[in-house]
Nucleic acid binder design. Structure first.
Lengths: 166, 166
DNA sequence: TTTTTAATTGACTAAATTAGTCGGTTATTC
DNA sequence: GAATAACCGACTAATTTAGTCAATTAAAAA
């Protein structure tokens, strides 16, 4: 069982897509800006998400990524599986050969735990997350902040220009 | 959230203790032999288990470790916590400062998941595991095997001796 | 048609964590 | 006092994560 920033980033990015991708595709640069995830790292993650048919890509200007289907048809477990290979908690990866070809003493416990986690994450869709009040609040905060930083950027750019002009 | 061999080894070793420690203390060498876990590594893990008051140690010949209380009062979650520091699934470790001092978009999801996992593992005691039929079967197999290897060892030792005598 | 945008690919690197090893010390019993 | 087994700390190798970097390709806009 490994749930690290890799899986968390992937779910966060997909949720960002669900929140902003209703009209036009969302570029990784936008997601990177809003969620503070490195652009190059997002590229890596989205390569896997695309291979797992969770997103569709649109190249060129105005391009980006879209969800491959409705946000109510994409579940957190699928996203983590796509980038993490597995959410299995066993050491053997389910092959039951943990101890010299036979199951180890705690094999069944980890199987039960894996099932528990998988059931939980399989029930939560991106649409479920979008509905949540906290998620909406955080998203609003992020949009305001990224708008600010855009304002700040162009202001500082104007400033650089005017300094160059002097 | 990290559940790796470290936590799995700890639970397996504690279960071994629950299965074999009813009369006299169990040495780490015994556990190492039965469960195929490196003795030195077990020492590391048991240092933490002892600090967390899950086991008591007895030094000297015939010494080893015992559970610090009844196997029905020791839960899997406690064991993993002892060696793994945490089973938290959030990136911030629960401090809610995942994104520049504020909560990230998926913070609440990971909190819910952490709670789910913790609830599950908190309900399972070592006694529960000992009761299970599969655990009993596997334990019986391990005892037979470690008896064999003891026989095999002394046989091969005899063999070495007799070869040396020739 | 050229430029720009943004996805796509692959190779490479740094940091962190895990899973140990090794050598020696201390307490206890026989 | 010899053997046993816990205890301790420092060190190491392998793996994984979390990135970076450079170059290519496709599509739209100019």
């Amino acid at each position: 069982m490994r749930l690290t920033t890799k899986g968390r980033y992937a779910v966060t990015a997909m949720l960002d897509l669900a929140l902003h991708g209703s009209e036009k595709p969302v570029s990784l640069a936008d997601i990177s800006g809003r969620q503070d995830i490195s652009l190059s790292y997002l590229e890596q993650l989205f390569a896997k998400l695309r291979r797992n048919e969770l997103v569709k890509s649109v190249r060129g200007p105005g391009g980006g990524y879209r969800l491959s289907r409705g946000s109510d048809e994409i579940f957190v477990a699928q996203i983590i599986d796509a980038v993490n290979e597995t959410v299995d908690a066993t050491g053997c990866g389910g092959t039951s050969d943990c101890q010299q070809g036979e199951v180890c003493l705690t094999h069944h416990l980890w199987c039960d735990l894996s099932e528990q986690i998988h059931n939980f994450l399989s029930q939560i869709s991106l649409a479920n997350l979008v509905e949540r009040r906290e998620v909406q609040n955080i998203s609003a905060r992020q949009e305001a902040r990224s708008q600010e930083s855009r304002d700040g950027d162009s202001a500082s750019q104007e400033n650089t220009l005017s300094l160059a002009e002097i």
